[in-house]
Amino acid sequence: MTVIDAQGLVKRYRTGGQTLYALAGIDFALESGEFVSIMGPSGSGKTTLLNILGLLDTPTEGTVLLEGQDVTGLGDRKRTSLRKRTIGFVFQHFYLLPTLTAVENVEVPLLLDSDPEVTKRARTLLERLGLGDRLDHKPDELSGGQKQRVAIARSLINSPKVVLADEPTGNLDSETGRQILDEFRRIADEDDVAIVAVTHDDLVNEYVDRTVHLVDGTIGRERKNGG
């Protein structure tokens, strides 16, 4: 099933008298359970594409369908509640709230809903990610890999259809990076969640189903893994 279908994405910025193309016409579709990496040099538009797919940003031209629904022209409020329902985010710098424990951090996206089931679910997720003994630790008591696992658990708390990861292994050594990528692979396979990872790290490509290369805002060669 196609989770995200983006057609003819263009993102233009006007700076001074110049027009800058961050994206210059991109088609991108994502099936559920698919693990895709987006690679490309700095300034190639990777992050812009990720932001548009994650409904954090809107394209200048083109359409985005999320589970078949056109979400291109939606306003901030609707995009925000769609993000909350269907999308999970993982960041290079983890961005955990330093004042909250691991469990509370995982609960954050649903914290304001006062749903008593959330805590239980957060614990289960952390246990699944091997952090059963770190539930009540604050982020500064966790290693980089552990922090990223907490962040992954957070991205899964709302049972998303898509998880978008921006350089998820960027701040980790390769050993820890592999563990994190294993987790992603497992989540994609077991939970049928589509995962998009923007990365510079070639290591990622050993785990993904396919890699999309971006060059100057357009799609370069695409490589399918395995088969």
């Binding site: 925000t80 509640s81 993000r83 985010f89 957070r154």
Partner: peptide
């Protein structure tokens, strides 16, 4: 700034952040 950005990303409405 980033933390608040994350809150917004994971589905906090403007008024939630305000709250």
């Amino acid at each position: 700034r980033e933390e608040i950005g994350v809150l917004r990303a994971v589905g906090y409405q403007k008024r939630d952040v305000l709250k």
